[in-house]
């Protein structure tokens, strides 16, 4: 019995630090990159175009937009032909960057504080952060991070709205799939809608 307890204790000692280390690395990834992204929106010396360009560059490193673009169209990712998929992914990339920029612009210049994290699996974690808003309240923002091939990348972001976690990619997916179902899987219909939404977002930008 003593030997069994000793083995269990030794196993736990080996496993626990590894798990804790994985959490810390994921949390640090979010903390560093999220702060860089928010700071990129807060440079008064940059023009609007330069700010968007800098922000987009950080987001391309921070988030896996290709994975998100396929996730949000589900089964249609394998039904679009290569040309449709390419045009869709281009439209989606521009749209996603505009969504993130407009959403995160409300928090520009504020510090992202990591509150903790949850590992769904060794390669799938949620990092819980708070960001101070201009009205003095803290916004609860959660980042879903996948660890692949030695790299971390964000695949979804959730905002806590009165206890209701709104995941951006999951909401997009529900609506994109409904639109595609309604239009017999028309890539052009989806691309047109995405382009309309992007234009509106860009018009709203400061």
């Amino acid at each position: 019995m003593k030997l069994r307890n000793l083995i269990m204790a030794a196993s736990a000692a080996l496993v626990l630090p590894a798990a804790a280390l994985a959490d810390t690395q994921t949390e640090n990834f979010v903390k560093q990159n999220a702060n860089e992204v928010l700071n990129s929106l807060n440079n008064p010396d940059l023009s609007s175009e330069e700010r968007t360009s800098l922000f987009s560059g950080y987001m391309e490193q921070f988030a896996n937009i290709d994975a998100v673009s396929k996730f949000v169209i589900g089964k249609y990712a394998s039904r679009f032909n290569p040309d449709e998929l390419k045009r869709y992914q281009q439209a989606f990339r521009t749209y996603a960057l505009a969504v993130y920029q407009n959403q995160l612009d409300a928090y520009r210049g504020n510090e992202v504080v990591v509150e903790g994290s949850t590992d769904r699996s060794p390669s799938d974690s949620i990092v819980d952060t708070t960001i101070a808003r201009a009205d003095g309240k803290n916004m609860d923002v959660r980042w879903r991070v996948l660890h692949r091939n030695g790299e971390y990348q964000v695949v979804d972001v959730a905002l806590d709205i009165d206890g209701n976690l709104i995941w951006l990619a999951i909401e997009q997916r529900a609506q994109f799939l409904a639109l595609l179902d309604r239009t017999n899987g028309s890539a052009d219909a989806l691309i047109d809608k995405i382009n309309d939404m992007t234009a509106k977002l860009e018009n709203e930008r400061r």
């Binding site: 994975a67 949850t118 799938d124 879903r144 206890g163």
Partner: peptide
Amino acid sequence: RNGKIEDDPYKDLPDFDDFDE
């Protein structure tokens, strides 16, 4: 839930593994 996040908010999250590059 009176504005509280559910106990296990991540249990139903879809898997991304089938959708990556």
